[in-house]
């Protein structure tokens, strides 16, 4: 067979050839779903009542964006994501720093931290639902031991969102700890010794050495957690079905489920999905923009 191009150009092309099949499959599958989803979002379609989709143009988008409950759910989602991801990052960094310093039982601590992540979200949701029960829950029992008044947790419209955030933090902080710990352990020890001699306190070493060197890992973790928390559904569904009291835990995915999926408004469901995607992309872009060039040592 006659070979085309110089050996050099063939070598340069090779990597593209190797990844091509997977790219085609991924783009094909996703692209189809993407296009199909978008075309559904432009219709009014209830598979049971009117099996033929009726085109409505951007009507669904207009309808959604003008729905105060939808806007409320955007607000809830942003508060939920900011609260849970913020707490997870802070606690995760503190946890990672502590685990890194452990001399004994490091492996045991690391492994046992995985337990919340290994639990199926449904189980975690159910366990926490029991913990947060207003009458029989463990949390209120502990509060009573401390002489503090009982809290309604998921039954109270003030506490429902913080409660949901609490569970998310419980479930996902270990993940953040593990990723940040891996990052911390890959940092070179020498700059710390140099900084010690240069006169840096521990706090200064953290501020001027650890944080800048960890930026890349922190940004990736932040992105992961933000994207996932914007889509969080399962535990919230179990703890605050229908958005909880006052619909104060009505996140976007809950909204999508309750207002579009359950009543079989397929067009609205697709539209809501698209808007969630756009919001996620926007927030991701903001995070990437704010941390532009993060961790670069070029």
């Amino acid at each position: 067979m006659r070979r085309v191009g110089s050996p050099k150009s063939r070598r340069a092309l090779a990597p593209y050839c190797w990844v091509m099949p997977s790219v085609i499959v991924i783009v094909g599958v996703m692209g189809y779903a993407f296009a199909k989803g978008f075309s559904i979002s432009l219709t009014k379609w209830n598979p049971f009542l009117n099996p033929t989709p009726v085109p409505v143009g951007l009507g669904n988008y207009v309808k959604l964006l003008s729905d105060p409950l939808f806007r409320h759910s955007v607000y809830v989602t942003v508060v939920f994501a900011a609260g849970s991801v913020g707490a997870e990052m802070l606690l995760g960094m503190a946890g990672a720093l502590m685990v890194q310093k452990l001399r004994f039982l490091k492996g045991l601590v690391r492994t046992s931290m995985l337990i919340p992540m290994m639990l199926a979200p449904a189980i975690a949701g159910l366990i926490w639902k029991l913990f947060m029960d207003i009458d029989f829950g463990l949390l209120n029992y502990f509060l009573s031991l401390l002489g503090l008044p009982e809290i309604g947790w998921i039954a109270d419209k003030t506490w429902v969102l913080p409660s949901v955030v609490l569970v998310d933090v419980w479930q996902w902080t270990p993940f953040v700890v593990l990723i940040l710990l891996a990052g911390l352990q890959s940092l070179p020890p020498e700059p710390y010794e140099a900084a010690e001699i240069d006169g840096a306190t521990r706090l200064q070493a953290f501020r001027y050495i650890t944080l800048p060197l960890m930026k890349r890992v922190i940004v990736i973790t932040l992105l992961f957690r933000t994207i996932f928390s914007l889509r969080a559904f399962d535990t919230i569904f179990l703890l605050a079905r229908g958005g909880g009291p006052g619909q104060n835990a009505l996140t976007l995915s809950m909204y999508l489920y309750e207002r579009a999926y359950i009543p079989f408004h397929m067009g609205m469901a697709a539209t809501a999905s698209y808007i969630i995607l756009i919001i996620t992309l926007l927030i991701t872009a903001v995070i990437l923009g704010l941390t532009h060039g993060a961790g670069s040592t070029e």
Partner: peptide, 17 residues
């Protein structure tokens, strides 16, 4: 930091960022 010394390390130990 209070010994008034400076050190040069084998692998330089520069602050990469």
């Amino acid at each position: 930091k209070d010994r008034d010394i400076a050190m040069v390390f084998q692998n330089y130990a520069l602050y990469p960022h």
